[in-house]
Design a protein around this nucleic acid. Structure first.
Lengths: 298, 298
DNA sequence: CAGCGTTACGGTCTACGTAAAAATA
DNA sequence: TATTTTTACGTAGACCGTAACGCTG
């Protein structure tokens, strides 16, 4: 079942078997067993070409959702284990983990709950929402907007910068407008990433109504920087990227008229009542109140 | 996994094992293996009481969806087999299979496609929508309204009747109003049946804004008639029930002011293009055109 | 011939059922 | 003490990996 999904991606028994860490004959037998079990041929194989039959194509999305749901079971089980162990899995996208507010919240959380174990991990562009929805992490420091089912607490708001190749005519400006960037392709993200989220980050559609042309798909920020440095496309990032991600061949220019970006602490709405999640929510609220109180005063 | 779902329903190892057609020790071992595999205890068992742990409760819905999606795989595979074999699985709820338009459509379909094999089965109240969405049947003769994702072709529209216990003061009337029926509990349906569908059939909320009180849950029409005959609740049915379901202790009375009911041929929107489904759609359209053409003329 | 999928074979691991034991109210 | 879950044990089937085979371009 999972093997079938992998085979559909690879269209090659040897490679697929390797990905699943079993020998190729074993893989072949499993697929054949699945076909016998279901009563339909799923893949048409000649020893030179492997392709899905119509039945295989029809079954592929169903198989995918089935595999996803058993993955979800594992993740939810892990979340339950963490819950009884007093553990909290925290994810963070890009440079959010290094931001002052994030560090302050984690410090506050540790101070308030000395027995709470924190598992912090970084999330890449492709999977940050999946990590939350599938329960791989309990909470995450992310960038809005989040899709329905995810609740957020706004942590900070700031300008966005354009991420341009060094040889772009605009690369050395101190500020640009969306109109000046019109026509430049924007790095794309894989389909498992919610479209609405990336549309916001690509400013698609633009204020003038035009839609964005997309460049190569990247799965993480380093791939994004490589794509930009190669001149294949541009990207929009939160202003903090400027200081946290200096990269050769990549210049940052503030975009004066893009809607501001919002950093947020996010969690699944259905998990709102979990004690560990409540703990970090309270810690975050405390830090925000303290900051806003001291801000005008200092 | 599936065993866990069954155990959660039965809360009894022996009964659950029997439902799964394996011995009780084997069942017990499987559950324990699942717990070891996930790393969490799912059920708290004393030899007198079996109950779900919090982790088990959290995992139960996920396990359910996982089981459902593998069931869907089997059903979609069956649909594919039918497709290559030139078979069409047709479902029908209540008396729809016996209605003249249904019989005419099936006759037309057989006449146009002599090689097409038809598998007709009846669907009960609880599962008629699931049978479509999970691919157990390709098309179905149902009663509107259908939830999104299901397309319909309207076949007939007619008044609704109240289904009342024989000793109800209104049971021998020729016509009643919703206002006269106010306060009477209505038979309920299990949760796997879309709420919007049953709300329509229970006329909930009523035109005056009041909500309906529900009686016992029934899974099929015969259970519905028993509940009504016992005086536990009333029900609303299409007028045709009057002639097709004479039952002791059950009287039918036309409801003068209930919105009319619509019988329809239904299929999954995503399957619209399948040749077998197209065939029955065309047959149905032809029958409808012929009927409407001859109607005014005769 | 070279690459790739399939079949053959020997060994291990899982999972069943029956029967006996342990645990709880 | 009675009901229900768990452990013990012997067997049948599933699955893996290595190696040999067959097919296609």
């Amino acid at each position: 079942m999972r093997l079938f999904v992998v085979l559909a991606e690879e269209l090659h028994f040897g490679n697929a078997a390797q990905r699943m860490f079993i020998s190729q004959p074993a893989f072949s037998r499993q697929i054949r067993a699945l076909e016998r079990c279901l009563g339909v041929d799923l893949v048409a194989r000649s020893s030179r070409r492997v392709e899905l039959t119509p039945a295989g194509q029809a079954l592929l999305p169903e198989a995918r959702t089935a595999v996803e749901s058993v993955d979800r079971i594992r993740h939810v089980a892990q979340a339950q284990i963490r819950c009884v162990q007093g553990r909290l899995a925290i994810g963070s996208i890009g440079a959010e983990a290094q931001q002052p507010y994030t560090r302050a919240i984690l410090a506050e959380l540790r101070a308030r709950n000395p027995d709470l174990k924190l598992d912090v991990c970084s999330l890449d562009i492709a999977h940050h929402v999946l990590a939350l929805t599938q329960g791989e992490v309990d909470v995450a420091f992310l960038l809005s907007p989040m899709p329905p089912g995810i609740e957020t607490l706004t942590l900070a708001t700031g300008p966005r910068v354009a991420c341009l190749p060094a040889d772009d005519p605009l690369a050395d400006r101190t500020s640009v407008t969306l109109a000046e960037l019109a026509g430049r392709p924007v790095v794309d993200v894989p389909p498992e990433c919610p479209r609405s989220w990336w549309n916001f980050w690509a400013v698609d559609p633009r204020p003038d109504g035009t839609t964005v042309r997309y460049g190569p798909v990247v799965h993480d920020v380093e791939a994004l920087f490589l794509a930009v440095a190669h001149g294949e496309a541009m990207a929009f990032l939160p202003g903090a990227a400027q200081t946290f991600f200096p990269r050769p061949g990549v210049h940052y220019v503030e975009v004066s008229d893009a809607p501001p970006a919002t950093a947020a602490l996010a969690w699944m709405a259905k998990n709102r009542t979990l004690p560990t999640i409540n703990a970090i929510r309270r810690a975050a609220s405390a830090v925000l109140q303290r900051t806003s109180a001291s801000g005008p005063g200092g």
